[in-house]
Design a protein around this nucleic acid. Structure first.
Length: 773
DNA sequence: GTTCTAGAAC
DNA sequence: GTTCTAGAAC
């Protein structure tokens, strides 16, 4: 009996000697977890082991399981352990809490520092082990914080220390540094502030309508980034890549994508605002074209196009994650080192790329049948269905049939749902070779001919896209449709075989493009590192119009496209009055800058931390629809002013990210450019409409705007009230812009500007400095 | 653009 | 009961 007692005491004594602690750090990237561990370990009075998921796999990011194993091993060695990973959600912590046993206490140290501080640290740091750096950090940090669940004792912690500022952190460091092998810290919660607010109530109120699938992150436990479900399984998807790249992209890649990355929380999408063509794989479905051969051709043609055109993007779309063609093309594109910002694969419905996946596309390709008729199933049926009857009508007006290898561009009327809701301004019908014996005119396994025709098909398709960007306005003034890949034959109403395509317009466009390439130094040099949605200035330099007088641009007549009949209520005239009489003493306080072209003021009801208005001073220019080619100079000046102040704001607060754009159907009279930071952190952002006015096509990017202006057409969407755009479901503004993106496009013509986003990963800082999507 | 309110929707 | 929406007034 005595001996039993003695032995028990001995055990207890041993336990005291070896009493260990597992400290689970809880905090966003940039909250200082690693610094905390290092500080403690530097002057520790007990052996510690730091388990860092960012570096656990030979210096690279590892898995949760690896962390658990490493922690267990350290405990066996008698070391106390820091779990250095974000651990923001209870589920992520649960496994680590289980490390606590009789001899092991489990503590949490919560580094609940302001999100902005974390973001700014992430942005500034260059050598973070998790490689979470650059502007995209903002998106990641905020997204993660949105899911933050502060730890509770009920999870199994014996002690929780909350640090809300640097001094809290400092005292926690001291506590743990001083912790000798036999010491224990008292149990309980320490330092918790009453509020655990993460999100801006007013915003979440309407954001909750967002389908969970659009924002769900299934990978948060293992990745520092979150990935919309749509993208989650397709590693080549731009957004996922960008988000996930917060942990996996190499430094080189980061450098390479300097521009887009620096463009923000929205950075993730900055590139998504460039003109984009989404296309399905041609002929590999019903026409049974060999997938491997098709993959080679796709990559070959894509590469050819991207070499020719600098400011456009191609996306290969398929419905399923299991798509063989996507994976093959992806692999081949990777081998050829094709820029994944400018060509990537995308899993989703090609008719719902924007609302379903946040991807904004100028044009989509249709794997059409030779009769150019709706129906038949597959992509063709889906696109005709989604576009509504106007696509059939518009197509019919242009051509009656399509021959294999050729393409036909059709401008979608703005009334088309595909245009309204998805921002797709053009459908390019393309017909590939048929290898299916069950279908008419099959090629009887003649792949020589088949490959030839498929090459032609992709050439036609991409040339069609190019012509949307570049072709003369001249002949299209007569039509709503944009003929592309067409020769003079097309004037007779039949589509042209692109293999013979020597269309002067295309040639000119290509020439233009190559000249542009020479001049264009690339986005990295063009914009520097400023986190400004831009592209306008340098793109003006690129435009064909400035050096290709043969490209005729319509000039505004009378009131242009603006609705001259529109009446403006007195309340809507305040900007107009200011613009007409900026010298008036009563406006003195409001005006930040006056130039000959515009005045700059703070928005009276800012929808973000920084929200400026550049108001045109020209009388009669009520809104964007009034603007046309003769105003390009003014628009450029306005943009320059906006950009200048955006940059200035960024220099004062590096966490800010800006987007510049116009409301397509503004409430206030007088053309005004919004310069708005993408945090959307404002008590004035109160409802769905507020959100949508900056995160849908209602807020078209500059590229859209310039296109519209240059063809003197209605800006898309011509009227938000008509298009019911405000009824759209809410999606995170991404994606870009690029929202990103939130939005946009139409006709053939000059490409004067590029990035402005719509949608996607625009992230939003709420009033607590946290971001949501 | 905002605020207010009534009534519908939940 | 609360939340959302649409309309009116400014």
């Amino acid at each position: 009996m005595d001996s039993e007692m003695a032995s028990k005491e001995e055990v207890e004594d041993d336990e005291r000697k070896t009493r260990m602690v597992v400290v689970i750090l809880v905090g966003a990237p940039g909250s200082g977890k690693s610094t905390f561990c290092e500080a403690v370990m530097k002057s520790a009075h007990r052996p510690w082991s730091r388990v860092c998921q960012d570096t656990i796999a030979n210096g690279k990011a590892g898995t949760k399981a690896q962390c658990l194993k490493s922690a267990n091993d350290a405990l066996k060695d008698g070391k106390s352990v820091f779990i250095d990973r974000c651990n923001l959600e209870s589920e992520q912590r649960a496994e680590f809490v289980k490390l606590g046993r009789d001899q092991v206490d489990v503590h949490a140290v919560v580094l609940d520092l302001p999100a902005r501080l974390c973001i700014s640290r992430c942005v500034k740091r260059t050598g973070h082990e998790g490689n979470l750096q650059g502007g995209k950090a903002a998106a990641v940090v905020n997204r993660m914080l949105q899911k933050k669940e502060l730890p509770k004792l009920s999870e199994g912690f014996t002690r929780i220390t909350f640090c809300n500022d640097e001094s809290d952190v400092e005292s926690a460091v001291k506590k743990y540094s001083a912790l000798g092998p036999l010491d224990t810290l008292s149990s309980g919660c320490f330092g918790q502030k009453s509020s655990n607010s993460k999100v801006q109530v007013g915003i979440m109120k309407f954001l909750k309508k967002v389908e969970p699938s659009n924002i769900v992150d299934s990978n948060l436990g293992t990745s520092q980034g979150t990935v919309p479900k749509h993208y989650a399984k397709d590693s080549s998807c731009l957004e996922q890549k960008k988000m996930a790249s917060t942990v996996s992209v190499s430094d080189k890649e980061v450098e390479h994508r300097n521009l887009s990355d620096n463009l923000s929380g929205v950075s993730a999408v900055s590139v998504s605002d460039i003109p984009t063509l989404a296309f399905p794989s041609i002929s590999t479905a019903d026409f049974q074209f060999d997938i491997e051969k098709a993959s080679d051709i796709i990559v070959e043609k894509v590469e050819e196009f991207l070499n020719k055109v600098t400011n456009a993007r191609l996306v290969l779309v398929d419905l399923t994650h299991r798509s063989k063609i996507l994976s093959m093309v992806k692999a081949r594109a990777a081998l050829k080192h094709i820029d994944t910002d400018r060509f990537f694969t995308f899993v989703g419905d090609i008719t719902q790329l924007y609302t379903g996946g946040g991807l904004h596309c100028t044009a989509i390709a249709n794997a059409a049948n030779w009769r150019l008729k709706p129906g038949g199933g597959g992509v063709n049926a889906a696109i005709f269905n989604a576009a509504g009857p106007s696509l059939e009508t518009a197509t019919k007006e242009r051509a009656g049939y399509l021959s294999p290898g050729s393409a036909l561009v059709v401008h979608l009327p703005s009334s088309s749902p595909l245009h309204k809701k998805q921002g797709v301004s053009h459908v390019i019908h393309v017909l590939g070779p048929n290898m299916n014996p069950q279908r008419p005119n099959f090629l009887n396994n003649d792949y020589k001919k088949g490959c030839e025709v498929l090459r032609e098909a992709y050439s036609s398709l991409f040339n069609g896209f190019l012509s949307i960007l570049k072709s003369s306005v001249l002949e299209d003034k007569r039509n709503d449709q944009t003929p592309v890949s067409r020769t003079s034959e097309s004037d007779r109403g039949s589509p042209t075989d692109s293999s013979k395509n020597s269309d002067q317009k295309i040639k000119r466009a290509v020439t233009c493009e190559s000249e542009k390439s020479k001049k264009y130094k690339g986005p990295e040099e063009g914009l520097g590192n400023e986190q400004v949605k831009s592209g306008f200035t340098e793109d003006l330099d690129l435009t064909c119009s400035s050096e290709a007088p043969q490209v005729k641009v319509p000039v505004k007549k009378d009131k242009g496209n603006g609705d001259a009949s529109r009446t403006w209520s007195s309340w809507s005239l305040s900007l107009y009055h200011i613009a007409m009489h900026p010298e008036n003493e009563k406006y003195k306080k409001e005006i930040i800058e006056i130039s000959d072209d515009a005045v700059l003021l703070n928005d009276l009801y800012p929808k973000a931390r920084r929200h400026l208005l550049v108001v045109a001073r020209m009388d009669g220019l009520d809104c964007l629809a009034d603007a046309c080619e003769e105003h390009l100079h003014l628009l450029k000046a306005m943009h320059a002013m906006g950009e200048k102040w955006a940059k200035k704001s960024i220099s004062e607060d590096a966490s800010l990210i800006f987007r510049l754009g116009y409301h397509s159907d503004p409430s206030m009279r007088q053309l005004h450019l919004h310069v708005i930071s993408q945090d959307f952190n404002s008590s004035y952002l109160k409802n769905k409409k507020h959100w949508n006015t900056f995160n849908t096509a209602f807020f078209p990017g500059l590229w859209n705007m310039m296109i519209a202006v240059s063809i003197n057409s209605h800006v898309y969407p011509a009227n938000a009230r008509e298009t019911s755009i405000m009824d759209l479901n809410l999606y995170g503004h991404r994606i870009a812009s690029e929202t990103p993106d939130i939005e946009r496009h139409r006709a053939q013509v000059l490409v004067l500007s590029a990035p402005v986003c719509l949608h996607l990963f625009g992230s939003t800082l709420n009033k607590f400095g946290h971001k949501f999507f």
